[in-house]
Design a protein around this nucleic acid. Sequence first.
DNA 1: ATTTAACCGAGACGGTACGTCCCGTCTTTAC
DNA 2: GTAAAGACGGGACGTACCGTCTCGGTTAAAT
Lengths: 192, 192, 192, 192
Amino acid sequence: MTRPGRPAGPTTDTETVVLTAALDLLLSEGAAALTAQRLHQVTGVSRSTVYRHWPTPAAVLAALIDVAPTPPAPPSGDLARDLHAAVDQLCDRLRDRPVGAFLQALIVAAAADPSTAQLRHRYVGDLLTPFHTVLRTAGVPATDREDAVAAIVSPLLLDALLLDRPAARTRAHRIVDTVARRLDPASEAEPA
Amino acid sequence: MTRPGRPAGPTTDTETVVLTAALDLLLSEGAAALTAQRLHQVTGVSRSTVYRHWPTPAAVLAALIDVAPTPPAPPSGDLARDLHAAVDQLCDRLRDRPVGAFLQALIVAAAADPSTAQLRHRYVGDLLTPFHTVLRTAGVPATDREDAVAAIVSPLLLDALLLDRPAARTRAHRIVDTVARRLDPASEAEPA
Amino acid sequence: MTRPGRPAGPTTDTETVVLTAALDLLLSEGAAALTAQRLHQVTGVSRSTVYRHWPTPAAVLAALIDVAPTPPAPPSGDLARDLHAAVDQLCDRLRDRPVGAFLQALIVAAAADPSTAQLRHRYVGDLLTPFHTVLRTAGVPATDREDAVAAIVSPLLLDALLLDRPAARTRAHRIVDTVARRLDPASEAEPA
Amino acid sequence: MTRPGRPAGPTTDTETVVLTAALDLLLSEGAAALTAQRLHQVTGVSRSTVYRHWPTPAAVLAALIDVAPTPPAPPSGDLARDLHAAVDQLCDRLRDRPVGAFLQALIVAAAADPSTAQLRHRYVGDLLTPFHTVLRTAGVPATDREDAVAAIVSPLLLDALLLDRPAARTRAHRIVDTVARRLDPASEAEPA
DNA sequence: ATTTAACCGAGACGGTACGTCCCGTCTTTAC
DNA sequence: GTAAAGACGGGACGTACCGTCTCGGTTAAAT
């Protein structure tokens, strides 16, 4: 990583600075704040520079999402325990990480730039992946898998997206119990 | 004590003209198009007049929602049949009526005007009401009711909101079957 | 064809109410405040009514000027005394009455409505009339009369119009002395 | 400690273009035309840019006045001749240059922005300066000086301001004769 | 007493200007 | 080659007036 030319200067990594501030902005002011103008005001980085790196607010959003990728899924155990673990992890991310803000931002961005839809689909897919993995590993057939994932995850996302309330973790665990009991009657798991 | 002069009230049917166009705009261009400017361009109604009637885009949205109220709930039968009916009705509304667009618009509007959240909560509540009614009539306890409604409705809303695909009607019916079988083992209803 | 209607004129004293308020407005806020809107706010008289009576702000101004006509000139005496009296009267009007405000208003109004110029010329003429009368009575020839009136009156108007300071009464009297001494060397009048 | 980047300063001659057009506008349409909107229509320069340079019409007016400064006073000779020269110069400026329009504009501007008064006082002062200089050089005491300047200049300004007629040059010269004869009886100058 | 028209109030409507803000592009300069 | 500074055109925004219009209520005069 040799930088040509410019010998002096602290060479602050502009992208890091801006993206960090962008994340703060997204969480504090919402998706509409991811503007070149706004980022300039917050970071001091010149407006021209911001435009050069990310020509559109959607690009900033995409960069943000790429920067904070989904952490690897839990190893594995039996069906019920793994589902509970995945629920806990998703609830944690909905609480601590900007997953909710990301989802809202992805909808808001699509209002101005329809091409964002693809990014949104990918992001939702990433959120669902752990659950699909667990169920597929347990040998659940595709249709049942779809239904189960939908019944478990959708309510959590809806809480964050439409009702502005923390993810109903215990309700999600109850639904997991129901699902697990139906798909794998042998295991009579207890809620976490 | 009647004061002289002409009583209040808009003489013309400006509101009708604008709201009709607003609905078209919302469906064709999304929530960001519900601007006074845009409505003026589309309807020919003066920008001042649009502002006079609805000072903010959120007001237009609210008026639109009030104009298209939830149709009355179905009469009643047994649990499974009523749930299936409610699912069908919701899927129809998601397909024919701008429920999906409304939901997206309500999120977009909240980005600029946080006071829209209340409107959004009310709207989602109205969507859930039929299901709650059916389950309460059948004597299902509150907690189970919450879980059931969440498991049934959330996936449908999420399809419209995040994945831009038509409501997965058959999956919803399968989930209704599961739920109904668990809550009311007597009925062994088949999917419609 | 005798109609049994009500063929009378304006019954109420709306005009009085509005014009009184208009005068106050002119003095307190300047010529730009003589708006139908503003008069409505101040008087409570409906905007429509104001428009009905005076279609344009210039009309209000004209009505105001007609309402406050120049009081009759002083009877007469010798040249110097009469000139001093006229100066005093003009200074009083510049101080107490809205002559200064009228002049400014007449210039401001002309910016929006060039037809006001005629009104302005008439008004200035009325202000000069007493001086011309006095000098003509004293037998001063036309050219000298013009010069004398200009030298005496113009500085007073300029103070009010351009320099926003009270009329320099004593200076005016000094100029009158100079003029009178030159035009009528017999009279060695003392300043008032 | 030179910071990187391009230093300030408008690259193009936008200001020249706009101010030239502004002068034309002032003379052809009056003070009320010195609007950002109007300047944009006339010059093609964007409205934003006009606002960026002169946030208020009064600023445009001030810039115009600064652009056309008073030319240097005449060298000097005896009292009467210098006064006649100053009168001629002022009459020329009232005829050729927009002094009359400036004065009207300064009054109109004050109607919307009282802070313009200061600018107006300064401008009138500049107009009077040559006369004061001449008289002071000739040793005329302060009070007489004030009277003389007022008697000579005020009629000229009033013609331009209130009566919309060309400056009465010959009358001004007659008044100068009278004044000079009184202040400096040695010189029995004839009108130029 | 009834008619009749002048007067007035309330306000909807289209239109225009205002001043502010943001956006995206560009050029020029400095490192 | 990258960053900073900022001028510029363009456009939307929300507000404020303006002038016109219609509608409805009141009232004073003339029959």
